[in-house]
């Protein structure tokens, strides 16, 4: 088995609530992370993303002016983003099904519904580092495969493309 050595990773936390940023930072330091950067809204987050080039982005959904969904869409611009493949973990109070789909369609890698826990956060980090989903590029979408648990060999034959196109990714 493998685990993630978080001391080797650089994180960016984007949340307008200072207490929430402090909680996430505390958990990350507990995991051994040394490099944690913060931003308090989506616009500042985008700038910090380009400046610090984090390995993992942790963002809130609901933020003033420029929210986590818009931020994710900007980061997932394959032709302009400094790293469109970066894992994005969205921490949110929204648990409704339509919200989950909206986050998925924006290109979020993993969601973590509040209240946040150390184990829940660690599991999401482990998932994006150890078992990242393939990325999909279509005319309308760029981001992690929106179907979970995709095996690499499912894509081997051209015949799989038709199934893929019907899966919601196209």
């Amino acid at each position: 088995m493998f685990r993630v050595d978080c001391s080797r990773l650089r994180f960016l936390i984007i949340d307008d609530n200072a207490y929430m940023r402090r909680i996430i930072r505390t958990l990350l330091h507990g995991f051994g992370t040394r490099e944690v950067f913060e931003a308090e809204d989506g616009a500042a987050g985008l700038e910090a993303f380009a400046t610090h080039l984090p390995d993992v982005v942790i963002t809130d959904w609901s933020m003033p002016v420029f929210d986590g969904i818009e931020l994710t869409k900007m980061i997932r611009q394959p032709d302009t983003s400094p790293n469109p493949f970066v894992p994005i973990i969205m921490i949110t109070g929204y648990a409704e099904r339509n919200r989950v789909f909206e986050a998925r369609d924006a290109g979020v890698s993993e969601m973590l519904v509040k209240p946040i826990s150390a184990k829940g956060l660690y599991q999401r980090i482990a998932k994006v580092v150890l078992n990242p989903r393939p990325f999909i590029r279509t005319e309308n979408y760029f981001g992690p495969d929106r179907r979970h648990l995709v095996k690499a060999d499912q894509y081997k034959s051209r015949g799989m493309a038709a199934n893929y196109m019907n899966s919601g990714n196209a």
Binding site: F85, P134, R137, A161, A170
Partner: peptide, 19 residues
């Protein structure tokens, strides 16, 4: 796959942080 490209990530993060 025509209109769709599937990109398998090369494992950069895994190489960096998996132990």
């Amino acid at each position: 796959f025509g209109d769709t490209r599937v990109i398998h990530l090369g494992g950069t993060l895994r190489a960096k942080a998996a132990v």
